[in-house]
Design a protein around this nucleic acid. Sequence first.
DNA 1: GTGAAAGCGCTAACAA
DNA 2: TTGTTAGCGCTTTCAC
Lengths: 342, 342
Amino acid sequence: MTKGNKEITIYDVARALQISPSTVSRGLKDHPHIKKETREKIKALASEMGYQRNKFASSLRKQRTDTIGVVVPKLNSYFQATVIAGIEKITNMHGYGLLISQSQESGKQEMTCISTLFNSRVDGMIVSLAYDTKNMNHFNILFNKNIPVVFFDRVADCHGCMSVIIDNFKAGYEATSHLIEQGCMRIAHLGGNLLRNVYSERFKGYKQALTDNGIKYDQDVLIISELSDEAGISSVHKLMKMKNRPDGIFAANDATAVAAICELQKLGVKVPEEIAIAGFNNEPVSKVVKPNLTTIDYPAIDMGEIAATSLINKLKNTGTSNLSTIVLNHKLIIRGSSLRNK
Amino acid sequence: MTKGNKEITIYDVARALQISPSTVSRGLKDHPHIKKETREKIKALASEMGYQRNKFASSLRKQRTDTIGVVVPKLNSYFQATVIAGIEKITNMHGYGLLISQSQESGKQEMTCISTLFNSRVDGMIVSLAYDTKNMNHFNILFNKNIPVVFFDRVADCHGCMSVIIDNFKAGYEATSHLIEQGCMRIAHLGGNLLRNVYSERFKGYKQALTDNGIKYDQDVLIISELSDEAGISSVHKLMKMKNRPDGIFAANDATAVAAICELQKLGVKVPEEIAIAGFNNEPVSKVVKPNLTTIDYPAIDMGEIAATSLINKLKNTGTSNLSTIVLNHKLIIRGSSLRNK
DNA sequence: GTGAAAGCGCTAACAA
DNA sequence: TTGTTAGCGCTTTCAC
């Protein structure tokens, strides 16, 4: 478009057809007022002439962009990429474009993303919060203009935004209970920033499971980190140095759990015999590590599709758009890392 | 923007300042004809009033969108996400927006992506081809309108498009030579679609290394697949059924190599003693699998940055924008999966 | 150094 | 069922 031959406009089509531009405009979008015959003619000629709607003129006029912004912490996980595939599927179906950006887990970068997308005048946004986002002030520009936001996975409770999540409390409870069933008496938790719902809920579930099974919660074996590989490794060292070593670990994500397994093995500790381990997310790597990782599976593609559908419903004011939270099912996947020989 | 209070425009700023809209427009972009003093005043008030440039009006008028389209095969790899981070960094610096889409490794889906981005009137595009893209016809709409395209990693030679790649031939040669040095005499190759430069070059390098070391290339141990986990598994079965089993495997990506290692171990075959293995890409999983995977590392972030920089140079007609191919360095990372005890 | 004015291509209220 | 018309907000040529 920069240089090449000039674009075909509705005026060109109108002139060729000896009708008015507005009729062309209407015909192109199947406006019911236009005679079917005329519509067909318009569409046929338009496509023959290679007409492409000019989104800028249209957005300018309509005060809508038909574009949705997406902000995820990182793109490089199977989970996120799959959620996005789900979002893409739905938004494409409804003729929305997608502007995707990554906050790189940084609250500061997240502000930039939000503000960039805001300046691009997206109609709505789908967001999963960065690891260290402290408050939601940077969303105010959106709320002030009534730009709807749907959160998924890492959500926040604000301004009645919709959220799509799983029951992280229950999942944490189940993973921990499973470890207890396997005979663990002292279970460490490698958790994330408790500001994030996903991590605080998983932690609460963990604690509740301990309590319900008569095990005392011990703060010494709670290790909060950014849940990286390195964190997994250093956490293991910390735990192994204890006089009172844990015999189980529930990690809030797979990366940390996997790093922990590898490091434990390096230290000569047997998994699951000496320490049983469970992770979270069912990333593909959980099937590579030996023993395979017990973890929580949750439906990334559905999360994306549902988040997108909710947002579009809200934008179009159709469907049941005032649901505030949608909770999807998760599943505990039991594998070798936690299964003690029976 | 949909409903909320109306936007501030240059007219509002102009009125408040008792000057003309054109002066405001110029002042905002530091046009040299405007007195410095006036410029400052304009900018101060504009930001105070919360003015945001309307990109649609601007694009409509300028016939440029300041937006770049990106098409990658899949988002869910460390490599791709990192390339994109590199692209984002550069494009943000230059005030370009980014439209990202995934072809899901399907040539058909790739057509849709290209055409959607084309309809969004991106100024230029950065592309890594899908697994099974057969021809480049769907790029013609871009070439016809002089929309510049930069390819990275999975590139194609067409219309003088720029490409950012590594020397896949050399990398394949090195990986194979390394296996030979470790004593492998019969090396299988798990390759990808030879239509893709990356796979054909890796294959050629493999073949050349065999030849240079006096090993006869045997087509029986070349297995072409879509390089998935499943492909790794079934390939291993196929190879293990042979009377004349290979003692080494060079896989064209890490996923396949890792799946192969796991499956071999399941079958009771020792890696690297009985079969030495090398992969490609240095995905994080290569450090999880036991033994750790020997692989080729290449600079994803640089690839993204360089691709973006080249494209922007081309768009702005600055820099050395007529380079056709940029080749980055790669590195053979030797790990346990190929290291025979010495 | 600043302003007036035209127009980018589309949509929708209103008119016919 | 179709046409007329008035902008959406910005940029830029031309004039002063």
